[in-house]
């Protein structure tokens, strides 16, 4: 089993994007997603692709890492492309055989949808996960949501839970690998047999995994109590977030990008149907 996951991993660096305020990044990503969904013409997608390239260059993340992160997406991409090519009806017939009709519009649609998915993934991961530590991310989220405290939603507790969950993902992956190896050493077989046999083969992994997860949670709770953790009430921060000019500029930049996209939508020879 391949447990190396590049998508969503933090890549250390010191670029402009790394240094942005996490709150600004969250807002920027939300705006960016809206902008990507606004784009409908080839010209607009061209602009967005250029913007994504600029984003990658600014972040200083090696393109190879980003390409590696796209790998798990291949199946979804292929699926949407095939679906669009064969099921979109248009006016210019390209190819016809029995019940299969391929229209030019379908091919265009497939290309643009695939591009949309890739752009979504690349720009959100460059803006957020590759360049922001999970801690900074939940910190930013907590502060953005802090107005909700007024209506008694435990924002701090939620963000603490999220931080802890994120923190323990690599630990759990490592633990799973260790346990799998230990059971493999005793001849466990996870890859052959009927579906039921394979499901049963997971028991020797899941039981130890759950036990250690509970044990870890218990130990963590004790450790936090030993350091007098009582929740968010009256808690001050070690890293106080400051918004800089660059954060405002980034958000304005994305709004301008959105305006550009809307404008370019008017000059498209072909428009995406959805």
């Amino acid at each position: 089993m391949n447990l190396d996951i590049t998508f969503g991993q933090y890549c250390e660096g010191d670029s402009v994007i790394h240094r942005m305020d996490p709150r600004a990044k969250i807002i920027a990503v939300l705006l960016y997603i809206v902008v990507i969904f606004l784009a409908k013409s080839f010209a607009a997608f061209g602009l967005l692709t250029a913007a994504a390239v600029v984003l990658v260059l600014l972040s200083g993340i090696r393109p190879r890492i980003i390409l590696h992160g796209l790998k798990p997406l291949m199946f979804i991409l292929l699926f949407t492309v095939v679906l669009n090519i064969f099921f979109i009806k248009g006016t210019t017939l390209l190819f016809e055989w029995a019940f299969i009709h391929v229209y030019l519009e379908g091919v265009f649609n497939a290309l643009l949808i695939a591009l949309r998915i890739v752009l979504l993934l690349v720009s959100t991961s460059v803006l957020m996960t590759y360049t922001t530590t999970p801690i900074a991310l939940t910190d930013g989220l907590e502060q953005l949501l802090s107005p909700l405290k007024r209506i008694h939603i435990p924002v701090h507790e939620f963000s603490m839970m999220m931080t802890i969950a994120l923190r323990f993902i690599p630990t759990l992956i490592e633990e799973t690998e260790k346990i799998m190896n230990a059971q493999k050493a005793r001849g466990a077989d996870f890859s052959t047999g009927s579906l039921i046999q394979r499901a049963r083969a997971l028991i020797p992994i899941l039981v130890p995994l759950f036990i250690s997860a509970f044990r870890r949670a218990d130990e963590l709770a004790t450790a936090m109590e030993c350091r007098c953790y009582t929740g968010g009430e009256g808690r001050t921060r070690m890293n106080v977030l400051h918004a800089h000019a660059r954060d405002v500029i980034a958000c304005i930049g994305i709004c301008l990008l959105g305006a550009g996209v809307v404008l370019l939508n008017r000059f498209g020879a072909y428009m995406l149907s959805w």
Binding site: K178, A182, A185, V207
Partner: peptide, 14 residues
């Protein structure tokens, strides 16, 4: 080739 990993007690499950 039997392998006993580090802290093997964490693999007990039955």
């Amino acid at each position: 080739v039997g392998l006993v990993m580090q802290y093997p007690e964490y693999q007990l499950f039955d």
